[in-house]
């Protein structure tokens, strides 16, 4: 593959790397797994890049490859210690004014999202990224109606997890 292509790929990915970090954040629960998944997504993005025609935004294209890798291709390594202790895996929060009750609530919310299944996480991820139902349904391969139905169920499920 030519150098120019490689260069433009790495540059674009470097610019949009937070999208990959965000996918990893939802689908993994420790730092090692985060790094592993990040690497696998990068590999898959690079493999798919020659077919990227630029008819969609690079970031939109990244969502699809990233989620596909997290949901279908990525294999959790056995050597890794599996833990549900999400608290132990937190990135530094930028120094900002934070309401401590809100922070506590957010922590509970992120923990609740971690308890969802892979497909539900994808829905939440796309919702958090402010994607409309048309894009959500196209990314997952389900109808828009089903995407809405599932989203409502996810909302209810989150409520149940938070208030058992």
């Amino acid at each position: 593959m030519n150098k120019e292509l490689e260069h433009s790929f790495v540059e674009q990915l470097q610019k949009h790397q937070n999208i990959v970090h965000k996918v990893c954040r939802l689908y993994t629960n420790n730092q090692d797994a985060h790094n592993d998944l990040f690497q696998e997504i990068t590999i898959q993005l690079w493999r798919a890049y020659p077919k990227f025609r630029g008819d969609s935004k690079f970031s939109t294209w990244m969502y699809r490859v990233g989620l596909n890798t997290a949901i279908t291709l990525y294999r959790k390594s056995k050597r890794r210690i599996q833990t549900d202790d999400f608290d132990a895996y937190q990135f530094k929060i930028k120094a900002e004014e934070y309401d401590s009750t809100e922070e506590e609530q957010l922590k509970l919310l992120y923990n609740a999202v971690h308890q969802l299944n892979d497909i539900e996480k994808a829905l939440v991820f796309l919702y958090l990224e402010d994607k409309d139902y048309r894009e959500i349904s196209a990314t997952l391969g389900i109808t828009e109606v089903n995407a809405r139905v599932k989203m409502n169920r996810v909302k209810k499920k989150l409520k149940t997890i938070l208030n058992p």
Partner: peptide, 15 residues
């Protein structure tokens, strides 16, 4: 709940 999460998510507070 999800709206609160979205607000935080988009604020991009994580480094």
């Amino acid at each position: 709940e999800l709206e609160l999460l979205k607000k935080d998510w988009q604020r991009d507070t994580i480094e």
